[in-house]
């Protein structure tokens, strides 16, 4: 509690509360609006924030169930949203597992071993991390085109390609895990090595069990980043049933085929789980993100 307080403090506190509440209302308007729109019937309906005639039409379609309206007309789901969500989750889980495995072992070497070119590699990883993959899409496209001629499950229009391409973005995670390893006293592992353990055993049986929290964070971080990845997936994936959610979702809002209500339901359905995961893990995620400075 501050020792010196001006008389106007009470009013300032009140003003701050009011200001922040007003700000939050404005900020949340788009999100609340989308939830509201997902319950309106039709794709062009206007109305108040609380829909007068709530309808589950868009939710049926988002869940892949054909919807029969009161006029007896049956609408087929326009896009396989659940399939897209499944594709996204599949790609993100496999990517996150691979990223976690590979960046943990790398981080271990960077944190505990001495070898030629260590400082150089670490610094160049930080520099290259800032180059957006969008700019080398032509090259990535050509690369996967070539690989795909010989290894079909890694070619264009495969999930394998998207998964493998996501491995390019590991530097951030390596730095995050390395930072955590640095904060763990290395005398434990040294003791184990003196007792006859190999380097690998010291890593596997001593350091890893102590680092579970950071591994969880990196897994979630890698998962979310892969789910949200747009440019590479948009070039590598072509078929409608192969798209990820990030690439597919925009098809709802084409000028010629504007499905605003259907989009709203699909957006809430697919965005909610990711939002909840993020909010739940935000404390750790923010720490990891501030280390690399991406997003926003």
């Amino acid at each position: 509690m501050a020792m010196v307080e001006p008389r106007s403090t009470k009013y300032r506190v009140l003003a701050s509360h009011l200001g922040m509440l007003a700000f939050i209302v404005i900020i949340l308007f788009p999100l609340l609006m989308v939830i509201s729109i997902s319950f309106r019937s039709g794709n062009f309906a206007a109305g108040s924030l609380l829909p007068e005639n709530p309808s589950l039409e868009h939710w049926y379609l988002a869940l892949g169930i054909p919807y029969t309206g009161e006029d007896g007309v049956t609408t087929q789901p326009p896009f396989p949203v659940l399939l897209w969500l499944w594709n996204s989750i599949k790609i993100a889980v496999v990517s996150a597992v691979l990223i976690l495995a590979l960046s943990t072992t790398s981080a271990y070497a960077f944190a505990r071993m001495r070898f030629a070119g260590k400082g150089f590699v670490l610094k160049s990883m930080l520099i290259f991390q800032m180059f957006p993959p969008v700019l080398s899409l032509v090259a990535l496209y050509a690369l996967f085109d070539q690989i795909g001629n010989h290894v079909s499950w890694l070619g264009l229009n495969t999930h394998g390609a998207v998964i493998v391409a996501s491995l390019g973005g590991m530097a951030l995670h390596i730095w995050t895990i390395k930072g955590y390893f640095d904060s763990i006293d290395r005398s434990l592992e040294e003791a184990a090595i003196v007792d006859g353990a190999t380097t690998w055993q010291a890593f596997r049986y001593i350091l890893l069990p102590l680092s579970v929290p950071i591994l969880v964070v990196v897994f979630i971080l890698a998962f979310i980043m892969t789910i949200m990845e747009y440019p590479m997936a948009s070039v590598l994936l072509v078929d409608t049933d192969k798209l990820t959610l990030a690439v597919g979702a925009q098809q709802y809002l084409y000028e010629q085929n504007y499905l605003w209500g259907d989009f709203a339901a699909a957006a809430v359905l697919s965005g909610l789980p990711i939002t909840v995961i993020f909010l739940y893990c935000q404390k750790w995620i923010v720490g990891g993100l501030t280390a690399g400075g991406v997003k926003g």
Binding site: I27, L28, P30, L31, M33, V34, I224, I227, M228, Y230, L245, A246, A249, Q250, Y252, L253, F263, A264, A267, S270, G271, I274, T275, F278, L279, Q282, K295, G296
Partner: peptide, 14 residues
Amino acid sequence: ILPYAVPAFISILV
């Protein structure tokens, strides 16, 4: 921080 938690590709389309 809610705007940060919603996936960007969804909020941009919204």
